[in-house]
Design a protein around this nucleic acid. Structure first.
Length: 306
DNA sequence: TAAGATAAGAGGGACAT
DNA sequence: ATGTCAGTCTTATCTTA
């Protein structure tokens, strides 16, 4: 059963078609338009105050709370920095000699924070991760997970000889798998500009070296994603879910690409409900080919006695 | 124009050597 | 470690309704 919570509290209109309201899908964490299926990035909702609130000109805005600590920051958001106020704890100006001392400390404080190779690596990786987050519209939990995996990988020295972008992309893919967030290798490949082959190689390496255990992705989770991309009705979605359930029971689903399976089920449900979607439409939304849909379709027909 | 069929090719898992 | 095999998916092309 696909839960769909309607997010009526925000009166947001879809930025693309300006007609639909914004719904959020609790299984994938995606926000999308109920009319045209446009998927929004969750950037706006997640952006908090700046993570370092020390401003250059004055030190009076103590009201800022800052963000919680995050693994997806090179120093986990915990860095202590020396402020720029040149005042002591009681607010009195510093003496000239003390000021130059502090100035020198500040310089070194900066250098140790930014210029250590490990930190540089993290910075680069996590800025890449942030980019991917926007492109793929995944939730914060997935990003945290990906960052965690990446840190583990770096500790084990797995980055040597591999590109950071490939590593971070596969860490993100692993995080998606782990959190049951349906994103395909293809999605991540496109977003990260890393070849699918490289991602899979790194991904397997991560599983091997870190001893990760990944749950098999449930095709049911894929349905919501494809359906929202193609703008299908709730009923079709429910029917497709039912079809998948029976297909699983007749064990034709094992070893098959879950996206292809979900796409085929949706296609069957489309035909049954008289929704005018071609195989191509569904295939494109699912990121598989029409041939794959046809093949799964054949298997589905057997299990449903059509 | 959509749907079905067929063939060639790639990549990876299982298994044996 | 390396090679082979069965099975899956993709791409491309042709046919059918």
């Amino acid at each position: 059963m696909m839960e769909l919570t309607v997010n009526r509290s925000t009166k947001d209109r879809c930025p693309r078609c300006a007609q639909g309201g914004i719904l959020s899908d609790t299984t994938t964490g995606e926000n999308f338009c109920d009319k045209c299926g446009f998927v929004l990035s969750d950037k706006a909702a997640a952006s908090g105050p700046e993570w370092r609130s020390f401003s250059k000109d004055d030190g009076t805005d103590r009201a800022r709370a800052g963000t919680p600590t995050s693994l997806a920051m090179h120093d986990m958001g915990l860095a202590t920095v020396i402020g720029h106020t040149d005042k002591d704890a009681t607010g009195k100006p510093l003496s000239a000699s003390m000021r130059s001392t502090i100035e020198r400390l500040r310089t070194w404080d900066n250098r140790t924070q930014v210029h250590e190779p490990i930190d540089r690596n993290y910075r680069q990786a996590f800025s890449e991760l942030d980019r991917l987050k926007d492109k793929l519209a995944v939730g914060d939990a997935v990003i945290e997970k990906a960052a965690y995996i990446y840190r583990k990988a770096l500790e084990k020295g797995l980055v040597r000889g591999r590109s950071i972008s490939a590593l971070i992309a596969s860490a993100l893919y692993a995080a998606c798998r782990d959190t049951q967030t349906p994103r395909t290798l293809k999605d991540i490949g496109i977003a990260s500009n890393v070849k699918r082959k490289d991602i899979t190689r790194c991904y397997r390496l991560l599983l091997l070296e870190l001893g990760l255990k990944m749950p098999v992705v449930d095709p049911v989770n894929c349905i919501a994603r494809i359906a929202s991309k193609t703008g299908l009705s709730e009923k079709t979605k429910r029917d497709a879910t039912k079809i998948l359930k029976t297909a699983e029971e007749s064990k034709i689903s094992s070893g098959k690409d879950p996206m292809g399976l979900a796409a085929a089920a949706l296609y069957v449900a489309c035909v049954a409900n008289g929704e005018n979607k071609t195989q191509r439409d569904v295939a494109e939304a699912a990121g598989v080919t029409e041939v794959t849909i046809r093949n799964r379709y054949k298997g589905l027909k057997v299990s449903l006695d059509l």
